[in-house]
Design a protein around this nucleic acid. Structure first.
Lengths: 264, 264
DNA sequence: ATTTATTTTTAGACTAGTCTAAATAACGTT
DNA sequence: AACGTTATTTAGACTAGTCTAAAAATAAAT
């Protein structure tokens, strides 16, 4: 059996790969908050187990098997996040920590059931893609808000797990799915000026925050509409599938509904 | 932080106490499937931690603090079982193993939320009482079917976690809440003869199975109705609260419903 | 190209939990 | 009261994961 410790190491390697960063001993150690020496030990162990390729003093890359396992956990993590948000009424800033624990212990049955329950979604509450059961990720292309020129955009994902940060983004109404206009960059030192569609007043956002926002251009109206209807098709099985909803502001209470039933 | 290993030990001690069995090294070892020597070590450790009172060669009893922690886990276990059954569409034979893993990792927030979600229930899918947040258990008095004289009863709880056994009981339609008549004992060697209310044909049940069924007499009609309306009051927030439903036979599928929302 | 700084690995130790095998205590019987 | 049986504890070892501190390898800078 594969331990949750190993699963966390694999996740860290996948994460670094996704960011095109070299998976060195120290970067992994930093991500997992362990000592460098611990990582060295684990590298050797994972290498022996065939989960990664490791050359001392260079770095490591996941093998096919290692990547498969890492994607499995990533899928679990993000599906659970969405489940906690949509079904359990968690705020989007609360889902990460709980998912971090659950991802290692729930059964495959549990995962399959929430997957069906949620209508086979492909985005978690932060806008990150959820790998399917085969490990395939449906990645839409987006750009970092920092790198964007003035124009029309939609928030696509927020790549930061800190609850305080996410709560801030939510207060600023910049949750995934929100359309907005980027007006100016740098006219005020260190701030972006932007306006959320429908609002009268523009607002400001620090570059430190913009760093974690990824957006998609919506300038071309035709493209925009095409993309949206595609999204709806994918989410058609779901009741509350709108992305723009502000998850934490909704009133949460114990409510009744029909239990999901299994088909067999 | 308290480890899940310790939590499992505490659960075992509580279970033995509930069965009025002496918590000896060997009985605990058997329950947890570990070697006797491991239990001795753990006893010393838990004693030092103030969770139980232990005299070498005699046995152990939980302290108030130990019992509190054990009840906390028991509460989690049973609430999660009910959640899996009612919300996730698990069959009652599937809930135990999954709950066994989840009980150690879910947050208090998760527990509180499913508690509210389910309408503050006090019985799990097997008819076992769910301790409330303070550790109080609302135990209805019941008797073992083996000790029952012929008469009218209702299945109250099934104290066996084996999936195969539970599946069998369900096939025999003897899930908690089912009213039935006990017709004869021992006329056929090793079998009880009983008839489920509303059925035309009587059925048989081995004493090995009857050992695990606990029932409540329903002879006195007045008492019976009083008890039932009391149950309804407690479960009024819940939609599918009928006990008699046969959990595994219901069709299960991915279905949509309103997410629960938190009040804050 | 030699020194300096940084990163990585080794060495040794610690914790929690487990095991087997041997020693010891308690119990039931005569 | 001595005996054999059974239950319990000790002794010592193992695994997975972690740490600190020192040694070694690589990279950077003069």
């Amino acid at each position: 059996m594969i331990s949750s410790t190993v699963e966390n190491y694999l996740k860290a390697f996948l994460r670094l790969e996704d960011m095109n960063k070299k998976a060195s001993t120290s970067t992994v150690a930093r991500q997992l908050s362990v000592a460098d020496a611990s990582v060295t030990d684990m590298l050797r162990k994972l290498q022996k187990g065939g989960l990664l390729e490791y050359k001392p003093y260079y770095g490591a890359t996941l093998t096919a098997e290692g990547r498969r396992l890492a994607l499995r956990i990533l899928r679990r993590h993000r599906l659970i996040e969405l489940f906690l948000h949509k079904v359990m009424g968690y705020g989007w800033e609360e889902v990460h920590d709980e998912a971090e624990n659950l991802e290692h212990v729930v059964s495959d049955l549990f995962v399959e059931r929430i997957d069906a329950y949620l209508g086979y979604p492909d985005k978690d509450p932060h806008g990150e893609s959820i790998p399917d059961a085969t490990g395939f990720r449906n990645e839409d292309l987006d750009i970092c808000l920092l790198a964007a020129d003035p124009g029309e955009y939609e928030v696509h994902k927020v790549v930061n797990d800190q609850p305080e940060f996410l709560a801030y983004i939510e207060r600023e109404s910049l949750t995934p799915g929100t359309p907005f206009q980027l007006l100016e960059k740098g006219s005020v030192h260190g701030l972006l000026k932007l306006k959320i569609s429908g609002r009268s007043e523009p607002q400001f956002l620090g570059i430190e925050a913009a760093k974690y926002l990824y957006v998609k251009a919506t300038g071309d109206r035709l493209d925009n509409q095409a993309r949206r209807s595609k999204q709806r098709r994918k989410k058609s099985l779901q009741s509350g599938g709108e992305r723009g909803e502000s998850p934490g502001t909704s009133v949460r209470r114990a409510s009744q509904r029909e239990p999901a039933r299994r088909s067999k």
